[in-house]
């Protein structure tokens, strides 16, 4: 067996939560939507990109506990005094959780929010990095 300890599917998705409701008309309270995410894996880290439009950094909560990365973003409601003439999407908070394998270096997780896109970087622990074996020619 190889010594590389790259695990299969180290980031599981716990998307199907019962408290996630379908969209409704904008303006109502207590709605939670599932944000769209991309997950990329490189040699040194996993990088998650999530769409959280309308969430500012002070209303964003990214937690890592017990191998579980949870993202919750609050979206402010507004436009109450106006009449909704036409609606194609609901407005509400965003929440999503991912289970993360042992191979993530939890202390070095970093997150950045820009233009409604959350980028979470999950560095791999040294022992989890794939090693390239130099082959010597004789």
């Amino acid at each position: 067996m190889s010594t590389a300890v790259t695990q299969n599917a180290p980031i599981g998705d716990q998307a199907a939560k019962p408290d996630l409701t379908d969209g409704n008309r904008a303006g109502k309270q207590a709605q939670c939507f599932l944000p769209r995410f991309d997950i990329w894996e490189g040699d040194d880290a996993w990088v998650l990109y999530g769409h959280l439009p309308g969430v500012s950094s002070e209303h964003l909560d990214v937690q890592f506990e017990d191998h579980r990365l949870t993202i919750h973003g609050k979206v402010a409601h507004h436009q109450d005094s106006r009449t909704l003439w036409y609606g194609e999407y609901g407005v509400g908070d965003f929440q999503r959780s991912f289970t993360v394998g042992e191979s993530v270096d939890a202390a070095k997780i970093s997150a950045e929010l820009k233009n409604g896109v959350l980028t979470v970087r999950l560095p791999k622990q040294e022992r989890a990095k794939a090693r390239r074996i130099e082959i010597q020619a004789h």
Binding site: A9, I11, D13, R36, F37, D38, I39, W40, E41, G42, D43, W46, V47, Y49, H51
Partner: peptide, 13 residues
């Protein structure tokens, strides 16, 4: 986003 190599596990965007 630009990445050299690596693997995309999920692309919902």
């Amino acid at each position: 986003p630009k990445h050299e190599g690596g693997t995309w596990h999920r692309q919902e965007r």
